[in-house]
Each structure stands twice: as C-alpha cells, then as structure tokens.
Simulated assay, not measured.
Amino acid sequence: MPLDKPYYLTYRPMIDGPNAGYSRWAYIRDPYYARSPGHYVRAYLLIQKDLERLFEYVEPSPEAELTFSFRIHELLMRTCIEVEANFKAILDANIYTPAINRFQQPIYNMSVYKKVNASHHLSSYEVMLPLWNGPRKILKPFEGWNTGKGIDWYQAYNASKHDRLQEFKQANMGALISAVSGLLVLISSQFQDQDFSAGDDLISLGGMDYHDMSASTGSLFRIAYPNDWPDGQKYDFDWAKLRGDPDRFQRFNYDRLP
C-alpha cells in the first residue's frame, strides 16, 4: 500500500490522484516537516557559488579533473562536512539510535549514513553539469553503494583530511564536482527544488527546457530523480486534507535496517 503520510525530511514521488500536483510539494513547505530547512539550502548555495567562482579560473572539463589546489581542497572539506550534516539531520528527524564509542560519543560515519539510501534512493539519482566542456558526463555520486566500492569522492575527502601532505592530490576538481553533486542529491532528496526563499512562490511551466533532466536548486546542475520507486513506497495523500492533522508526518525507522 502507498504511504498515506510523508516521512520527515524525505521527498518521494506521489501516486497520481486528486490534488497530487499540489500535494507533491506542499508538504515540504510545512513548518513541521524540517527544522530550519533554509539553513541547509543556504549552505549548499554558498558552496555552489564558490564552485562557480573556481570555474572562472579552471574550466570544468576532463582535462581539469586532476587539478588540485588549496582552494579546491578547502571547498571539498566544506562540502563533505555539509554532506555529513545533512545525513545526521535526516537520521535525527526520524528514528535512529546510534552506537556509542568508548568515549561515550555517538558514532556517525559513512557506514551509518548508508542507511539513508534505503529511505531516499540516493544511489538512483543522476546529476549533469551543463557547463561541462567535454563529452556528456552523468554523475551518480552515490552509485558506489550499489557496487560495493564505496563513495570515491568521500574517500578522497577522508584521505586528504587525515594526511593532507601525502594525499593532497586526491582533493582534486573531479572529486569536488562529484562531492557537490552528492550534496545536491541530498538536498533534493529532502526538499526537491524548494529553496525556502523569502520571495513569492512561482508556478513553473514544463516542456520548454533547453537541457535534459530537471532543474535543480541553484540552477547550476540538472538532476534526474529516481524512477525505481515501487508504488507501495510512494506517497498517496491529499495534502489539503492532511495538513490539518496534528500527526501529519511519520518517522522512518532506521533501527530496523541491518
């Protein structure tokens, strides 16, 4: 059976039905859906702005993927810290009991964050950078979870964070672009394309896009949302009716996952 209430911080497609067009985004704007969502979107937009500034000096291209510098390293660190912050926010908003280490601190790492793939299908997202100066390149920042190889850009972040002198070159432009696309996937998997700005809501018209895929937050990348959701895991509700329910959201139970 489809889900009759949305999970906190979890965007999913809707079953087509009465008022589905409104319902597919309106719950995301509910003040109880997320705690300070604009905080996370703003952080992403600042990172994207800094990436665009780098593109003024280094053309995004196959030739530039191995380019490395302190500025690229700095932005990779910020991006992956923000990735971790988003993962933790999702787990905290739902049901997750972290293991405790010997210092009595909760354990959060990529093995833990992988649980979010079950609820958000992160590994099924695709991202494209239209500015890419080379053969068409589709980024799948969490695809490594499907192949058992891990997340290469996150591994580059960890390596260059813990041993910058020896692993500095891993923090390169290719890793950075992949990391920013990963952060975009996380933002989109929670908030779709909502940016929580102070402006009026606008109605967009489809069918006139120049680029493939869908527009994304910040408009630098294009994004393809997962199409592998079974109907039983999609949302099916009329938000105009559900929004008055004090118990209108539910929590995903990550403790049940292995």
Rank of each mutant, 00 (worst) to 15 (best):
F168R: 04
F221W: 02
G134W: 02
Q190Y: 05
A93C: 05
L183E: 01
G174F: 04
D245L: 11
T67V: 14
W153N: 02
E59H: 08
K115S: 12
D200F: 04
Y8N: 11
Y40V: 07
R222F: 02
E143S: 06
E63D: 14
N146F: 03
D236A: 14
Y27R: 03
F168T: 05
P6D: 00
G17N: 02
Q104F: 13
P258K: 14
L46V: 09
R71D: 14
P13N: 05
D247E: 12
L75I: 06
Y113H: 05
H121R: 14
Y32N: 15
Y210T: 13
D201Y: 10
T10F: 00
Y125W: 08
H211S: 10
D231E: 12
N227H: 15
I203P: 01
E126W: 08
S204V: 12
Y7N: 03
E143K: 10
L51W: 01
K140A: 08
D212S: 14
P31Y: 12
D163K: 11
Y225Q: 05
R251K: 13
R243H: 15
S197A: 06
D200G: 09
D4M: 07
Q48L: 12
E82Q: 04
R35T: 13
I47M: 09
F237P: 03
T97L: 06
F196Q: 03
R78E: 05
I81H: 09
R136S: 03
P141V: 03
V83E: 10
E56S: 13
L54W: 11
E74R: 15
Y33I: 07
K88H: 11
A43H: 14
V112I: 14
F249G: 06
I151W: 02
F252P: 00
A34V: 07
E82D: 07
T217Q: 00
L184F: 07
R24P: 01
Q105I: 11
G206R: 09
A118I: 02
S181M: 05
P98G: 08
S69V: 07
Y8F: 15
W145I: 09
R71L: 12
E65Y: 06
P130W: 03
L205H: 06
H211Q: 14
A118F: 09
K234G: 07
R35W: 08
A240I: 15
S69K: 12
M128I: 15
V185H: 00
E56R: 15
E167K: 13
Y32W: 14
A159P: 04
P230W: 06
F221G: 00
F87H: 12
Q250T: 03
F196G: 01
G218M: 00
S23R: 01
E84A: 08
V185G: 02
P60K: 00
Y96W: 06
A99V: 07
E56W: 13
L205P: 00
R53E: 13
P60I: 00
I28C: 02
I107A: 09
K49D: 10
S61Q: 06
G232D: 13
H39P: 08
V112F: 05
